[in-house]
Design a binder for these strands. Structure first.
Ligand SMILES: [Mn+2]
Ligand SMILES: [Mn+2]
Ligand SMILES: [Zn+2]
Ligand SMILES: [Zn+2]
Lengths: 141, 141
DNA sequence: TCTATAATCGAAAACGATTTTCAACTAAAC
DNA sequence: GTTTAGTTGAAAATCGTTTTCGATTATAGA
């Protein structure tokens, strides 16, 4: 669990450590799936019942700035947050339980760059995300 | 310009052809970049000044149902619409002028499927988008 | 061409997610 | 301890989108 490191990083940026923040940080750091602000609020309130939804928004904003979480786009919505991977990685998401796993895709950069050339673009960045069914969810059928 | 075909398709689904709809359809059919509902409203009003924003929302909804347009996700927002490509294609978007170009990526399916296997996922779908700078915008510097 | 009718329209109200304001509270530096 | 700037949650404001509604109109059928 990396939530200790997250708190250290927040602290090192001059942010104070409060119970409200700790609850949000620990919720995000341990979640296997992307969470909306409302999700975070519901989950983190179990640890700190007085938590306000506003504080969830404010904390997620800081965590995103520090690259500790990233926004995840999905068919159902684009306002969910997930613990960030180290470096540049892509997501594989279970359409059933929403569990998210990171993978590398360095092998693709040449292909992307070729596509760019073909259309007279200089490719600077890309978004890649895979959707499927994880082993656990497959079994449940 | 495919806007005639779009109107035929709308008509064939039982929808009526109105000036308001024609303005939205023609705006979308000819745009080289993804447009937000507000963008569409601004542009289409030049052709039909009485156009209401509500009608833009309602028409985009129908066009999406008919797969004539698709929603495009970008850093700045996820509520922009673009003329749909034939079949399954991916987008290459200019970060400067927002011009969007489609490309195929059939070559990638094996890679995606392998990534899935490695993590015990059955991959069902994927989402890929490239960002860069187009030739025209490159020149302007 | 005329009529009947259900689809469509835009204005205004409602809605829901997010952001801002604000006065009370508190973590942390000294 | 005391001080103070950062943080809090409640409430109000904002903003994009959807719903409601009465007026208008495209279109099928006479
Ligand atoms: Mn990559
Ligand atoms: Mn593909
Ligand atoms: Zn799963
Ligand atoms: Zn999105």
């Amino acid at each position: 669990m990396s939530s200790e490191n997250w708190l250290v990083k927040l602290r090192s940026q001059g942010y104070r450590l409060t119970d409200a923040r700790r609850a949000v940080v620990e919720t995000m750091a341990q979640s296997p799936r992307a969470l909306t602000p409302a999700d975070v609020h519901d989950l983190a309130k179990e640890q700190y019942p007085a938590l306000g939804l506003v504080t969830v928004y404010r904390t997620l904003e800081k965590l995103e700035e520090l690259h500790l979480v990233q926004r995840v786009h999905q068919e159902q919505g684009c306002n969910a947050y997930l613990a960030h991977a180290d470096g540049h990685q892509h997501l594989l998401i279970c359409e059933s339980c929403k569990k998210a796993v990171y993978f590398e895709g360095d092998d693709l950069d040449d292909f992307f760059s070729d596509v760019g050339k073909k259309h007279n673009f200089t490719v600077k960045d890309h978004w890649l995300q895979l959707f499927g069914i994880c082993e656990d969810c497959e079994k449940e059928k």
